[in-house]
Design a protein around this nucleic acid. Sequence first.
DNA 1: CTCCAGGGATCAG
DNA 2: CTGATCCATGGA
Length: 285
Amino acid sequence: MNYEQVGNDVILHNTNSFNICEILECGQCFRFFKLDALDYVIVAFSKVLRITQQGNTVKFHNTTTQDFENIWFDYFDLQRNYEEIKQRLCQDDEVMQKAVNFAGGIRILNQEIWECLISFIISQNNRIPMIKKAVNNLSVSYGNKICDEYYSFPTIEQLLNKEPEQLKLCKTGFRAKYICDAVNKISNGEIKLNEFSKKQTPEIKTELMSINGVGPKVSDCVMLFSCKRHEVFPTDVWIKRIVYKLYFNDKDVSLKEIWNFSNEKFGELAGFAQQYLFYYARENF
DNA sequence: CTCCAGGGATCAG
DNA sequence: CTGATCCATGGA
């Protein structure tokens, strides 16, 4: 892979394991807008980025080499060798071979922790289109306008001292009080998001789960999608279904059995395996 | 109309 | 520790 600045765009050549549709639609991220097939607008880090793709050429519109190197390179996890990851996961595993064959262009985005946390709090018992709407409503109501109809996700300060009833206007529903609790615990220093990178995974999980409305699934998503903890295996209804069906011969198993299974089978690659399986399950069952 | 969604809190046994 | 019920909201 190599890249070059052409006018106002940065163009990636010879990109492998990269499909912008699969990356965005696989459920890890909620702040994007589809303009066309392989033509998306992403809002992250208070910036608006349009991406188009043709084959293994990816164009980042209206950006600079500086932003590409400082923000988007890590955001899209471009330093990681996904070919090797896929090869290791598919070794002696026909299920994973199908999943990877279906969507081998998935990459795990490295998102901002704060936004990721609030987004996945909203995700509980909710549907993806509704989650996207609620997150966007919060951004329009409390964030800053970046350009056109695009707004940055609100900062912690911008959500400070808001009542649950106010946040419900953004269609967050019963989760509004959970958002308030997250804001409070972070703003009073009880939870320090910027120290997560120094901590062990179980320690982060305990801290996240001290927030009302954050359980094992939401905390695993936050750790996988914004803390680079690839050994976790976020287990929701879809993952349960596909793991039963494809690995346990339709036998209903407990959460702990699924975690033990993923840990033994996928180990440090469990998070990647989860994304391939999740997208495969969502689109095919 | 009813049912349910990328879960988790709460309560009963 | 395991299971049932409820939660806002809106689309099917």
